[in-house]
Nucleic acid binder design. Structure first.
Lengths: 334, 334
DNA sequence: TTGTAAGCGTTATCAT
DNA sequence: ATGATAACGCTTACAA
């Protein structure tokens, strides 16, 4: 194969020095006539800028990494679009790193970001510790409402509050026995939602019944299993709150398969408001999160860090959640 | 900030030359004792390999790009997982490039792949021409069943045949008036499905009625609108075939909203078999494609090209589709 | 097995 | 405004 032309070739062709070519490319000050000559040479030779060599000098790659646990959850694509829209405009490429809930992969991705000298990291961490994040020495912004990573900027939604809204809604409909399907985190509890749930019980003097709390992998099958567990209880709950819509959709299906009418026999509430939540039957009542905005905001914060435009302390951004009442909730039977 | 240590620092610390350090890193032959000394030095200094500098010499980045039009379509995440699983094992990072159906973005991504000297490209092209793909000079594999890019390897599914299966199913149920909701391509017709549809009409001596063919953007709203168009026809079709599940789900909702029972009043068939297709009500009859396998295969073919393990001609891989008959299809009323 | 030294294609500094 | 020249951090002949 023919070797790719370099700025040196361009320089020779145009009869200038390579520094001049470099200036033309990066928009330095050059006389208009020479600029034109150089551009012609670039066209003629089919020169394409070598970002690798450039990065070597500038210590900038214009690439950032977006690390998420589960690309099949429609929540993330929406976030990703927000990230990309901002990053594209800023001239950054976004490397998508999907760990599939595997801690080992997550770690691998971080090393990749580090070795390739990416300019920054956006991550919804699953296993990695704050220390490990620190050791990458890369500007990092967390996605999600995580309080267990002090020292890092984070952008997420107020899921504690969202959970409260959902529970309040169910309570006001008359539900007193409410099941919770938690997503199983690899390494840590789904903290805020759980806490929110327990606080709510306390506040309304409802008894804590641990059989009402089940934990399954964050996928549809998990939701299905969880609902089965709950609905086969001697005294099944009259309502189920799932940690996200995927779980809720699984629960919906389980209820259906078991002959429980929704919302007649059991109410179901999800979280996230993914696109599919609108079109289940019945449509899913869910706690909506501003997914796209989380993405744009996270990207914006990261850019600020990268450009050192801010020496303020790390900061937590929490977007409010909004309960969307649809068809999957109603007063309990009897 | 403290400058990052280089192999030179490591070399000094370990009392060897930098070539030795390089050898240790890349697994060259070094005496065990010196290897150990070097490793200790690496640990001590917190050295992290610089992939940029390395790429500069080796002309390899170990990064490939996966360019797709619409990350919110659950079809792609499944493909992407296949790609990642293969590429991870081969030591490649996968840059996700989501164009959101914008040709300008697609072009931008290609330039990015080129400038950053990525090792290869997997792409489901929307606007870019074969010539433009050629000009990247990068190993490229197309994803999708495209016949209009001669000279390129491609991996996809036999969607012509899949469409036939769906139509045959509807025909054998007794449907004679079948609507088609096409996805609107930016730049070119959704060739194979359309051709398949028309061929089928011919073959069964069904009249061609262009009001039965509608075209809308590849999203749920598109499917919704399309179904409205079809179902408000003076003589609405008794069955609707949509170009993918997202469109079909929109159609399902439209039918529901308009008081058409599915499958009683109208049958609906999708394509892809995304996860959500199982849980619509009624569950969606659809033409399943081996999404994950398409991903792994595409990745495998690309790797072969990258490594020059093949000097055979370009080749089209077409996986068979499989009709999944679920609840959204039934004989027409009357 | 190890060291020496010549690149890889840019950008940045300093002259001119 | 332009040109020489020295980095940037690594790999890889080639020599020892």
């Amino acid at each position: 194969m023919p070797k790719r032309p370099t700025i040196i070739d361009v320089a020779e062709y145009a009869g200038v020095s390579k520094s001049t070519v470099s200036r033309v490319i990066s928009g330095g000050s050059v006389r208009e006539t020479t600029r034109r000559r150089v551009m012609t040479a670039i066209e003629a030779l089919g020169y394409e800028h070598n970002a690798i060599a450039s990065s070597m000098r500038t210590n900038r790659t214009n690439i950032i990494m977006l690390a998420i646990p589960d690309i099949t959850n429609p929540f993330w694509p929406d976030v990703a679009r927000g990230v990309q829209d901002v990053m594209d405009d800023a001239g950054y490429a976004v490397v998508f790193a999907n760990s599939d809930w595997r801690g080992s992969r997550e770690k691998m991705f971080l090393r990749m970001a580090q070795r390739n000298r990416f300019d920054g990291i956006l991550i919804n961490p699953i296993q990695v510790t704050a220390t490990e994040l620190d050791e990458t020495h890369l500007p990092t912004v967390l996605i999600g409402s995580r309080t267990d990573y002090p020292g890092f900027d984070s952008v997420g939604s107020h899921s504690y509050d969202g959970t409260q809204q959902a529970l309040k809604h169910l309570f006001s409909l008359g539900h007193r026995r409410i099941g919770l399907i938690q997503g199983k985190r690899v390494n840590r509890p789904g903290a805020s939602r759980m806490k929110s749930y327990l606080d709510f019980l306390d506040e309304h003097s409802l008894p804590r019944d641990d059989t009402l709390i089940v934990e399954y992998p964050f996928d549809q099958r998990g939701g299905y299993q969880g609902a089965i567990d709950l609905l086969t209880l001697p005294v099944p709950p009259t309502a189920i709150l799932a940690a996200n819509d995927i779980l809720a959709m699984g629960a919906l299906q389980a209820a259906h398969d078991m002959g429980f009418a929704v919302p007649g026999d059991v109410s179901i509430v999800g979280q996230d408001d993914i696109f599919a939540a609108k079109i289940t039957v019945p449509p899913l009542t869910t706690v909506a999160k501003p997914k796209y905005e989380i993405g744009t905001q996270a990207a914006t914060v990261l850019l600020a860090r990268i450009n050192g435009e801010t020496d303020r302390q790390w900061q937590q951004h929490l977007f409010p959640c909004r309960l969307k009442i649809r068809g999957s909730t109603a007063p309990p039977r009897e």
